[in-house]
């Protein structure tokens, strides 16, 4: 999975958990929290969906790695490679 695909995965998950958010103009390098109305419970759900849909585990101490789309891609791409290997 490429970093771009990884970002799309995260965006798809956000669209699912927060259907009332406009995701058309997200800057990948800006914190998601600063662009969208997401609280800590929504971030928990991003983690839960990654586990449910892709079998990816994100330990609680790594939650800050999911701050922006860029940091998500950075952090998650190797994890996607691991699970598909």
């Amino acid at each position: 999975m490429t970093k771009e695909e990884c970002k799309q995965v995260v965006l798809d998950i956000i669209a699912e958990i927060a259907p009332d958010e406009d995701l058309s103009n997200i800057s990948p390098d800006v914190r998601l929290r600063d662009q969208l109305d997401l609280d800590s419970m929504d971030f928990l759900d991003i983690v839960m969906e990654l586990r449910k849909q892709y079998g990816i585990e994100v330990p609680e101490e790594d939650y800050p790695q999911l701050a922006s789309l860029d940091s998500c891609a950075e952090y998650l791409t190797p994890k996607f490679k691991e699970v598909s290997a």
């Binding site: 958990i17 927060a18 009332d20 109305d37 609280d39 419970m41 929504d42 759900d45």
Partner: peptide, 16 residues
């Protein structure tokens, strides 16, 4: 509807 950052919308999201 649309009034975010309060318990009700947050709850609805969590329960989908």
């Amino acid at each position: 509807p649309g009034h975010k950052g309060t318990p009700l919308p947050s709850l609805l999201r969590q329960l989908r």
